[in-house]
Simulated assay, not measured.
Amino acid sequence: MPRPALLAGAAALTLAAVMSGCSGTLHVDPPTPTGDAAAACLKLSKALPAKLQGLDRVASEPASPYVAVWGEGEIALRCGVDRPAAMAATDQVSDVNGIGWFNDPQRPALYTAVNRVAYVEVTISPKFMPAEVQVDLAGPIKATVPE
Rank of each mutant, 00 (worst) to 15 (best):
L42C: 11
V58M: 02
G24W: 06
A109Y: 00
F102G: 01
C79G: 09
G21K: 12
T32V: 10
A85K: 12
R83H: 14
P84H: 09
G35N: 04
T34F: 05
V28S: 02
T123E: 15
M87S: 04
P130A: 04
G24I: 09
T112Y: 04
N97V: 03
A47C: 00
M19C: 13
Q92Y: 10
P130N: 03
A113N: 13
G71M: 08
P130L: 04
V96L: 00
Q106D: 14
A89M: 12
V81S: 10
D82T: 15
L13Y: 07
R116I: 00
V18Y: 09
R116Q: 02
D36V: 05
A39G: 07
P31T: 11
A68S: 11
L42T: 13
G98W: 07
A113Y: 05
P30V: 10
G21Y: 09
A39T: 12
R116Y: 00
L48A: 03
C41K: 06
P31A: 11
L42Y: 08
M87T: 06
G80I: 14
R83M: 15
N97D: 15
V135I: 11
V96Q: 00
K46S: 13
V135H: 08
V18C: 09
A68R: 03
P62H: 04
E72N: 14
I141H: 04
G100P: 08
V96I: 02
R107Q: 12
V96S: 00
N97I: 03
Q53T: 12
L44V: 07
